[in-house]
Design a binder for these strands. Structure first.
Length: 152
DNA sequence: CGAATGACTAGGA
DNA sequence: ATCCTAGCCATTC
């Protein structure tokens, strides 16, 4: 399926992932696998990564910006792999994510292999359920307008 | 359209 | 601790 024309079911999945990622508190991080579990699909951490990979850049059109998910309103940088490190991908992408995390006060370390790692014990966010689904959160108007630079 | 890929992970060697 | 494998499934070749 082309990114532009997703089936109904896939679109719902993308939306759910983006909304879940938006619930990760500023200064906290979680894993692809945890997002998948929160959405009731523990076998698809990989598909969470796919969603973030396709996260569009902020559009020049503002009206569209507020209504669409993009790297400016979805804190993609707060999602790490199960080991608590930034999944290596394109050159430069990892260091960019590391910078974005440090920018929000998270301590990112680089090990001998050049891997960026974060202390999950200190910054991990692993609730049993999404705050929005616990039925208690009336979501006041709080947003994470930081976001970070776009990815390459 | 079939085959390969990958922002993943748990489990086993 | 590190390396390998199987399962995963939308996207890309």
């Amino acid at each position: 399926m082309a990114p532009g024309e997703r089936s109904e079911e896939v679109h719902i999945w993308y939306t759910a992932v983006y909304e879940a990622v938006q619930e990760i508190p500023h200064g906290k991080v979680t894993s692809y696998g945890h997002i998948a579990r929160l959405l009731g699909k523990p076998e698809r951490p990989r598909q969470v990564g796919v969603c973030l990979k396709h996260l569009p850049s902020p559009s020049a059109d503002r009206s569209k910006n507020s209504a669409t998910f993009h790297s400016g309103n979805v804190p993609w940088q707060r999602v790490l792999n199960a080991k608590g490190s930034i999944s290596p991908r394109g050159p430069g992408a990892a260091s960019q994510q590391a910078d974005a995390l440090r920018r929000e006060g998270i301590e990112v370390r680089q090990d001998a292999m050049g891997q960026y790692t974060i202390s999950l014990a200190e910054y991990g966010w692993f609730p049993d359920a999404l705050p929005s689904e616990s039925g208690l959160v009336e979501s006041s108007d709080e947003e994470d307008e930081e976001a970070a630079a776009d990815h390459a």
